[in-house]
Design a binder for these strands. Structure first.
Lengths: 217, 217
DNA sequence: ATATTTTTTTAGTTTTGTCTAAATTTTTAT
DNA sequence: ATAAAAATTTAGACAAAACTAAAAAAATAT
């Protein structure tokens, strides 16, 4: 599989997680930063190779084979992210672009040895699950911070948006995976929240709270 | 720089180490496994971008800029080889192909952090020197085992041929970097040698001895 | 010194992945 | 129900990197 084919497959995988119907060419184009016409071409090729099912105007669906392949790419991406953070001391907002390249290295032996070296982690530095060598994903029970009730506490277990601007904001507020967060108050006008983290109370917008995953205690 | 341009640049670098004149298109074609005509095309492109100096029929020479770029690719290749052997427990005959892919990952930060993580190694698992971040190479004093005199001993510090068949042969004979080797006898007819390694005496062909570097004690 | 061989370059194709512009289908809105 | 808008596909073109076959230059051998 080529570099480009892998990127399309990964994009289709990510998009198909949040919908059950076929993934639209436009959505894919937006993710891989190409044009819809290019996507149509590529998708036909992927369909010929049986990574996806494709019907004109009906969007794209992964085949079993395609799903597994996509998961293996995600596995590689996330394992490399763990490596970069845990071993090379990158911060969580710096790892995405490099992992985007590393995920294309073709060696099953490499990735399985890396997995072992890292101690078989089940989550990447943003709290996203790492598929195991068979493609199995252990689902993490989590909810958005914005859905937590007043007075309740949760442990930060992941982010929905992993853009570096968001991650850097969290760093500034000293919110990291594992941080305990308590909902102190909610402002009904704009749904902003007062939360307690690290013995400090801070005010956050609803947008922030809608991009933070917590596990309620 | 593209993947392909990097491969050509690296090939030109390796070839220019063993000669002072321009590197021939045919020699490059053999190393990158392409045809001479393809090399001509690529070399023109590299010359336009000032990585090499090229004159029709006169071969190719690296510019200063090209030399540094080539050294950085070699640096990445060899650091990844160290990583694979030291951290992921690959054997020295397995690392080349994977490193061949890893060397193209584009991140100076990554490679410098990897360098630090590995403790700034100066040699790869085959005894080849690793250029530092400025491209400086500390030359290792070494000679071919075939050039060592009878009765003298040396420490194995590198291999000239790093094909997996040769490396696996060395493993079988329990010869590794750091092994002490003593020349017991030489057969003048075919230049084969009797050597002492690990308290055992073994017979090796001249071809073997001509591909093993030692540092004489 | 010239003929032959070898090496290198040129010219013309091919494949992959992309694009734009135009055509077509589907969706949405009245 | 039909018109307008949006999404998707098709057609045709382009750049990168490779190839084959033919032409040209350099090296070699008699």
């Amino acid at each position: 599989m080529t570099y480009s084919e892998e990127n399309y497959l990964k994009a289709i995988y990510h998009l198909s997680l949040s919908q059950k119907q076929g993934v639209s060419t436009n959505a894919i184009a937006a993710l891989v930063e190409s044009k819809a016409s290019s996507v149509t071409d590529m998708v036909k090729k992927l369909a010929e190779k049986e990574w996806v099912k494709y019907q004109k105007y009906q969007g794209v669906l992964l085949t079993d084979k395609g799903l597994l392949a996509a998961k293996m790419i995600v596995r590689k991406h996330r394992l490399w992210e763990v490596f970069l953070v845990e071993k090379l001391d990158f911060s969580w907002d710096e790892v995405h672009d490099v992992a985007e390249e590393l995920e294309h290295i073709q060696s099953e032996k490499l990735i399985n040895k890396l997995d072992a070296f890292l101690g078989f982690p089940t989550e990447d530095p943003h709290g996203d699950p790492i598929p195991d060598k068979n493609g199995n994903i252990t689902k993490i029970e989590k909810q958005l911070l914005s859905e937590l009730e007043i007075g309740k506490s949760g442990i930060c277990v992941g982010v929905k948006d992993s853009s570096s601007s968001f991650l850097q904001y969290l760093d500034k507020q000293q919110i990291a995976l594992g941080s305990e967060i308590k909902i102190v108050a909610k402002e009904s006008f704009d749904n902003s929240l007062t939360i307690a983290v690290n013995t400090k109370e801070i005010l956050i917008s609803n947008k922030i709270a809608s991009n933070l995953f917590v596990k309620s205690k």
